[in-house]
Structure formats: structure tokens, C-alpha cells
Design a protein around this nucleic acid. Structure first.
Lengths: 357, 357
DNA sequence: TTGTAGGCGTTATCAC
DNA sequence: GTGATAACGCCTACAA
């Protein structure tokens, strides 16, 4: 029994008088071993405080029980929810999460993906990451499975968990339309985000279908930060003809819109309606009270992890699976009929999805 | 050149006609190798797309370039800030973060610490974790270095990064006192949290020093959630003699207090003042506008990671170092003189630290 | 300066 | 059912 360094499988073998392979089998339960020896081994392992080295096992098995998770920035309130969902499954499967922030920077993403791959992660989950640039693609196309969340490639079909951006945006616009809004603005996300892009297109389509003002100046390109929303609102407020409602591409951004509105003395929803997207935990606070399109982020994270696990455990490369999760409008108090609209003074319509006549 | 599986150091050796050890040295730059061969090797490695296996290296070197981070719950807005700070340093040092949620559950924490140790992390950072129970202690007292954040042991001296809870609470109470408050309530955190405990003691001491109402019913024990704050506020509101000011043990909790206040029609700060702790990003929003005690969380995370790195790289076990980071009152609009207090109607005092006379 | 060989702790393959 | 032994990919004495 070596006494420098950690207790290894050999120590257990020596203690029981059995062979290393027997100990391994007894503990892993792969091969059949005599129940009596198994008990001996287990007992000895327990007594010695033996803990298998995951590192050695990884080297041998080429599986590390580790998955990499790439995120733009953990500090953005929407992100941790996804992580929790992933973690729920990971823990269940005995996996641990290697977390990487990329700050939307391709180079950082590439370098982080390298460190992940160098560590032989069993798989990766990419939340709102680049997935189209050649460098990233090269890494993705290795044999390490991966699942995309919230951002997919226009050119490649990958495993993907996303929200129903089309229907979600339709619901949003319809809801505001029914409230009487005809001049609806959008704060959209970065052009590199497929989700932002899909929402933008759905927005434009919906606006075109209904008799809404299609003024292209009503679309403000921002990103997923409070600041973006803040600036967007200043921009909208400065317009000759202001929008009567604003849809923000995410809640954090909506918070920025709200904040600018407070600053500018624009009352929400009296002077302007505001609709977010995500339903972050804080949206429900009475002070915020944001009507928003709920994405079940924890569930999405879990779904991604489940799918990834399946990919990891199955041998053959399967056909990519795209899972589109439905969204749901959560109505709180940030929307109301516009002051000069057809429904002015009437209470907010609670059934947003009735088609207009 | 093997063509099944990954490119190894032997492939590079074969390609250049050099020995494995030469390749290793050329790449790592440890031993001196001829500049010419070095170039050859580097070029070949590049060309073949060779990537050293971190797993193999970990097994050999007993260092994994990985650090474990234990958190109560990533979804709690205060947590990701710490993680970012840790990540800043980790990336710089070529380390990757293994993230574990423990939900304040000791058993989960123990099991997560095991998986971390099994993975041979170079070190661990424990954010608001248990550090006193025998089981946890056993794991901590192995030879893997660790640094505590925001919660330390009463019985053991460990490396620790925390905030100046004593002075912070003093500042908070003094500020409210100067505003004229004499009946100040506290929503404190879990008894297992040293930070909560220190703040509670400082609160009681400060209250006792000034001629404030020492009613023990003014202390409500909660945890770091919106719900706790919400319930605390309902409790305070139900009192015969309500407090005129509430100090919440963290901002998330303060948000809950705010929310309940809105629900109950209690205006902040007109009817009641509210002071938070943390200064989460959202606290600055005009809708929230929370006066709070700022903790530089990102800096604290970075400090912890720096210290951990030092521990990892130095051989001998050093004397524990406790770093206490100063806090700072950030005054926004959630505090005002009490309606019936000595300073009623006067504007909020902007210099909170002047000692009372 | 360069090459050889042994071992880090497992699991898998093969004999017995 | 069980035991020896060869990898997994790397680093580092030690030898040349």
C-alpha cells in the first residue's frame, strides 16, 4: 500500500489480495465477479477511502464525464437559467460542467472551444454562440457532439434547441395590434443571432399583414443589454412620430427601455406600451411588471443536455434534430391601448391571440 | 502516423523524425532544444493540427488546469458576478472552471466536492458554502487548495475573501439613523452564513450604540431570495408598531421587500426606507432605484482566484490569509427621513458617515 | 542537444 | 471467475 499520494486501485487490490482487474470489475460492475469478493473489495475500497481517478479513466476511456458550456456572459440574467437546466441533467448523469464565457467574441469562442476540446469534453452546449464562421465550424465538425441553444446556423443543420420565434413574435405583434397599436417598434438583437433574425423577420411579416405602420425606422438594432434598450428608447422618443408600443428582443433590454422611459417621463403603459421577451425572474416584480414572452429557459437547457447525452451515448452520427419550444405571452401591466387608438380607455385585452377582423 | 483517433505527440515525432521527448520539450520550451529542430517541430505540430491532451498531461503532472467553483445557485443574480471575476483570472492562467450548484444543501455540496476532487481540480473556490461541518471539513483538509468567498468558518482559519460586514452594517445603520430613523428592521440571512451572522451582530451592536429601538422582533430571519424579502415585509407590515426603515441582507431580498411594499400600498421611501446590500446591476434601474451597500463582487471573485493560483503554484502550506474588502454605500432613492422623525421633510442626508452628536 | 524508458491510474483483452 | 498485461498520451529522469 503506497503511502505517498492518492489511494489507487492497486492499493485496494493489495489490501484484498485480489488482482487490479478484479477490483476494477467489482467496483464498476461490468464483468461478473463473485458476490463474496465483490463485497470484500467494496468494503476495502470504502475503508481505504478509495476514489477512482476520473482523469485516468478519461484517458483510458476517452470519455471525461464532462461537458462544456459556452455562454456569452454568465452575468446576463437570462443565461444562468439555461445553465441550471443543463446542470439538472448533468448531475443526474454524473457529468460536470465546464463553463466558458465568450463575450460574443469569435476569437474568444474559438479559443475556449479549443480548451474544451483539449480537455476531451464529451460534448458541448453552445448558448447564443457563433456557429457559422469557418473557424468555429472546423471545431464543430470534429467528432465531439454538440447542441446549439438559441442560435443556429443558416447554412448547416445541427442539433438545436430554440424557441418558436416566429409564432412568438406573431403573438406579440397581434396582442399589441388588438390593443389598438398601429405604430409598433422593435428593438432587435445582433444580426449574427439567428433568433434575433427570425424574430425580426416575423416582426416585419406580421406588421405587413396587419395594417400597421411599416416604417423601417421603427426597428432599432441593439444587443442583449440594458444599455441597448436605454439607447433604443432615447432614439424612439426623439422621433417625430413616436411609436405607441415597443417590443424588446429580450427582457434585459426591455429593462433599459423602461429605464429610459422613466428618465424621459414617458409613462408605461399610459404613454407607451412595452413588451419583453424571456420572462426573467425579475420581470414579475410589481415595480417592473413587464408583459413578456416567456421562454422556458431551464427546460430548454435541460432539453439540450438530454439531447447531448443521447448523442454522446449513441454511436452513429444521427440526423440533426431541431427542437422548437413554444413560447407563451405572460401579460402583466406594461401594455395598454394607445391613447389615440381605436381601443383607447378600454382595458387591456386579455385574449391576445384572437385574430383581427 | 496513426490515422485512427487523435493526433498525438508521437505523430509529430514521427513526422519530424525526432524523438517524442524532443517534441515535448520543443513545444513546452522546458529544456533547451536546437532552434532549428524547434522550428521543425512547431511547424509540423501546426501542420498536423496537433493539440496536446490535457487529460494525459493531468494524469502525468497531477495538475489539471481546472478549478472547481461551488455556488449556491447560478440563477441568483449576485452569483454570476463572482464567477466572472474568477473567470477573468482563470482564463489568463489557462484554467477552466468546473461549475457546481449546491442549493445550500450540505449533501449536495459534499457530493459535488467529491466529483471535483475526483477530477483532480487544482483548487476550489467556495462561494457561500458550508465550511464547518465535519464531512465538508474532511474534504477541505485534503491537499487541494481552496479559497472561501463570503462565508468562513468560525472554528477554522482558511483563505477567505469577504466583505467588511461590520463596517458595512455600521454605515448602513448610521445612514438611516442620521436620516432620523429610530426603528430599523433587518432581514438577515441564514444562520449558517458567517456573513449574515457578522452583519446581524454588527446590526445589533450599532442599534445598541445609538438610541434606537432594540426590539428583537425587528429582526427577520430569511434567506437570499425574493420570497424571503416578500415575506419579511408582510411580517413587518403586520406589526403593531412598524419599522420606519428596513435593511435587507442582500439586494435580491430587498427586491422582495419592495415588491411586498408595492402590493401593500406602502410607499418606499415615503412610508418606509429600504436599504439593500450587493448592488446588483439591476439596482440602478430607476424603477428599482435601490440604495444599497456595494460589494465589488467581480473584484472579489478575481481576488479569490488570484489567491488560489498563488496557493496552487507555491509548495508549502502557507498561513491562511483573510482578505476583507471594503464596501461602499450607494445612495439612490429608496431611503428618506421618516414621516414622524426628527428630520421629517428634510431631504435625504448625503453624507451618511458623519457621527451623530 | 537528443533519445530511451518508465510510469501516472484506469479499463480492456486475453489467457487461465 | 479471476489474474497478468497492454494500452490511453504525456512528461521527465537518465543515458548517450
Amino acid at each position: 500500500m503506497s503511502d505517498k499520494g492518492r489511494i489507487t486501485i492497486r492499493d485496494v487490490a493489495a489490501a484484498t489480495g485480489h488482482a487490479v482487474s478484479t477490483v476494477s470489475n467489482a467496483l464498476a460492475g461490468k464483468r461478473h465477479v463473485n458476490e463474496e469478493t465483490r463485497q470484500q473489495v467494496k468494503e476495502a475500497a470504502e475503508r481505504l477511502g478509495y476514489r477512482p481517478s476520473v482523469v485516468a479513466r478519461s484517458l483510458r476511456m476517452k470519455l471525461s464525464s464532462t461537458i462544456g458550456v459556452l455562454v456569452p456572459d454568465v452575468s446576463n440574467p437570462a443565461i444562468p437559467e439555461f445553465i441550471r437546466g443543463i446542470d439538472d441533467i448533468a448531475v443526474r448523469e454524473g457529468c460536470t460542467i465546464l463553463l466558458c464565457n465568450t463575450d460574443e467574441l469569435v476569437e474568444r469562442q474559438v479559443s475556449q472551444m479549443h480548451t474544451l476540446l483539449d480537455r476531451q469534453v464529451d460534448g458541448m452546449i453552445l448558448i447564443s454562440q457563433h456557429c457559422d464562421t469557418p473557424e468555429v465550424r472546423k471545431l464543430l465538425d470534429g467528432k465531439t457532439p454538440f447542441v446549439l441553444i438559441q442560435r443556429r446556423s443558416a447554412r448547416f443543420r445541427d442539433d438545436y434547441i430554440g424557441s418558436d420565434n416566429l409564432q412568438g413574435m406573431r403573438d406579440s405583434v397581434n396582442y399589441l395590434y388588438e390593443l389598438g397599436h398601429r405604430r409598433i417598434a422593435l428593438v432587435t438583437g445582433p444580426a449574427t443571432s439567428s433568433t434575433a433574425q427570425e424574430r425580426l423577420e416575423a416582426f416585419e411579416a406580421s406588421i405587413a399583414e396587419l395594417d400597421c405602420d411599416g416604417d423601417p425606422d421603427l426597428v432599432y438594432r441593439g444587443d442583449y443589454t440594458v444599455e441597448a434598450g436605454y439607447e433604443a428608447m432615447h432614439y424612439f422618443a426623439s422621433m417625430q412620430k413616436r411609436p405607441t408600443a415597443v417590443i424588446a428582443s429580450n427582457d434585459v433590454c426591455a429593462l433599459g427601455v423602461q429605464d429610459a422611459a422613466s428618465e424621459l417621463g414617458i409613462s408605461i403603459p399610459a404613454d407607451m406600451s412595452l413588451l419583453g421577451c424571456d420572462d426573467i425572474d425579475l420581470a414579475r416584480l410589481r415595480r417592473i411588471n413587464l408583459s413578456t414572452l416567456r421562454l422556458p429557459k431551464r427546460e430548454m437547457g435541460a432539453a439540450a443536455a438530454e439531447l447531448l447525452m443521447r448523442r454522446i451515448h449513441s454511436k452513429r452520427p444521427p440526423t440533426p434534430r431541431e427542437v422548437i419550444i413554444p413560447t407563451k405571452l405572460v401579460l402583466r401591466e406594461s401594455c395598454a391601448p394607445p391613447a389615440d387608438g381605436p381601443n383607447a380607455k378600454r382595458p387591456a385585452e386579455r385574449r391576445p391571440l384572437v385574430s383581427p377582423d
